[in-house]
Design a protein around this nucleic acid. Structure first.
Length: 431
RNA sequence: GGAGGGUUGGCAGAGCGGUUGAAUGCACCGGUCUUGAAAACCGGCAAGGGUUUAUCCCCUUCCAGGGUUCGAAUCCCUGAUCCUCCGCCA
């Protein structure tokens, strides 16, 4: 949520900034509401003040043992007028809140302007696309003989799920373990375990609600619970409604969780393989920092995600998202794109964003500042990395002509020292 | 699932329906003292909003939402959550 003061002081300037990311703010509608709010609020508070002083007077009379019936009669219909004014004010305030809740974050000044992903800017590149002496296969072809089974998942649930068995399941787990260990041991993160089901307040706090409910899996029941679309939601919400001490910051959290996305509106995109699933594992990085540190924190966080790709020796590039391609809550975002030989292209494997105080305002997450005054924290999040897509990248980049997969050196300790996985009797017997 | 008890400022913890936005302690900030620090002592210290050049002033907030009342932290109802005991259970 943006600072309501921005709306009040110069709505036209705000509208111009929002237009950079393609959002059209209805200034006229807002201004009208704001006018009404001001008028009704002053009226309400005047009535409230009258009632307060009258009641206080009655109290004083009674305390002195005097007759208060005259004063009480004078109160008259004040209560009813006040209740009516309050009701009107509440209605206006609700409308304003709804408007505020739907406005996306302002892009940082340095974010390049663009309408969609074609406007994203290459920041840097690491490694070169893997050069094979043969025609590389995609992860679907490579995975099938190794225990990657989409048919079984269709039977169990439906499209956009997968089952893994044997070494490839272990490799999937190894990737997550390696990432957790790297971030906790080398990058100073605290590992956290969090609920995979969250309430509406949490989803509002990080910006998924009220605007993007169609992307979520909602549970039935009276509680209005949802499966998490990313660990960003539960982890960032750990500091909701908190007033932290400056000494407690920065906080760096890492969590390995599944993510559930309905992928509504993505029909026909990446329908084959593990690239776009309803359920996928992710190791998520979250920073809670002082405002003054958040720019540097985004660079650091992105570097931590990159470190995973470098350790795995996977070629990648860093893209800065343009205004039109950024998420609702983001002020600035870097995407990490890994090279996928099977698709002969770079694909997103991590997205690292600074939301500045946008989420913090929704979360009421604050820190006591230098002069003792509470100020909003800044929140950042990024994947470090998406485990499913990392598995895809390893399969495709480490494949051999025979179809077997070499195991990256850093993962071998997690694979009982194995350096190769290949089609096994076990998986062949299933076919 | 059943019974009972809690939920108050950053934290702990008082609070007869009427100057209680809320005692007290801790923490924090400033000062005195000290070579410096600690201790002691003195003073300050909730958040959000409205109006305002600013000060002042006003409003709201004691888990949440309703209700009673001229007036609610305080009384009533509903819900959330925590604790204790019983039952069940991985």
């Amino acid at each position: 949520m943006l600072d309501p003061k921005l709306f009040r002081t110069d709505p036209d300037a705000l509208a111009a900034k929002l237009l950079r990311r393609g959002y059209v703010l209805d200034v006229a509608a807002f201004t009208q509401l704001e006018h009404a709010r001001k008028q009704v609020q002053v009226e309400t508070e005047t009535l409230q003040a009258q009632r307060n002083s009258s009641s206080k007077q009655i109290g004083q009379l009674k305390a002195k043992g005097e007759d208060a019936s005259l004063a009480m009669a004078q109160v008259g219909d004040l209560g009813e007028r006040l209740a009516a004014a309050k009701a009107r004010l509440e209605g206006i305030q609700t409308e304003l809140d709804q408007l505020f809740a739907l406005v996306p974050n302002l892009p940082a000044d340095e974010v390049p302007e663009g309408a969609d992903e074609s406007g994203n800017v290459l920041v840097r590149q690491w490694g070169k696309p893997t050069d094979f002496g043969f025609s590389p296969q995609d992860h679907i072809a490579l995975g099938a003989p190794l225990g990657m089974d989409f048919e079984a998942a269709v039977k169990i649930t439906g499209a956009r799920f997968v089952t893994l068995s044997g070494d490839i399941a272990r490799l999937h787990r190894a990737l997550a373990q390696f990432m957790l260990d790297l971030h906790t041991e080398q990058h100073g993160y605290t590992e956290v375990y969090v609920p995979y089901i969250v309430n509406q307040h949490s989803l509002f706090g990080t910006g998924q609600l009220p605007k993007f409910s169609e992307d979520l899996f909602a549970l039935t029941g009276d509680e209005h619970w949802y499966l998490i679309p990313t660990a960003e939601v539960p982890v960032t919400n750990m500091v909701r409604d908190a007033l932290l001490n400056a000494a407690d910051l920065p906080r760096r959290y890492v969590a390995h969780t599944p993510s559930f996305r309905s992928e509504a509106g993505a029909a026909g995109r990446d329908t084959r393989g593990m690239i776009r699933q309803h359920q996928f594992d992710k190791v998520e990085l979250v920073h809670i920092v002082r405002a003054s540190e958040s720019d540097a924190a985004l660079e650091a966080l992105t570097g931590h995600a990159e470190a995973v790709l470098q350790a795995l020796e996977l070629p990648y590039r860093v893209m800065q998202l343009c205004t039109g391609d950024m998420g609702f809550s983001a002020a600035k975002t870097y995407d990490l794109e890994v090279w996928l030989p099977g698709q002969n292209t770079y694909r997103e494997i991590s997205s690292c964003s600074n939301t500045r105080d946008f989420q913090a305002r929704r979360l009421q997450a604050r820190v006591r500042g230098d002069e003792g005054k509470p100020e909003l924290v800044h929140t950042l999040n990024g994947s470090g990395l998406a485990v499913g897509r990392t598995l895809v990248a390893v399969l495709e980049n480490y494949q051999q002509a025979s179809g077997s997969i070499r195991i990256p050196a850093v993962l071998q300790p997690y694979m009982r020292g194995k350096s190769l996985i290949e089609s096994t009797i076990h998986t062949q017997a299933q076919r």
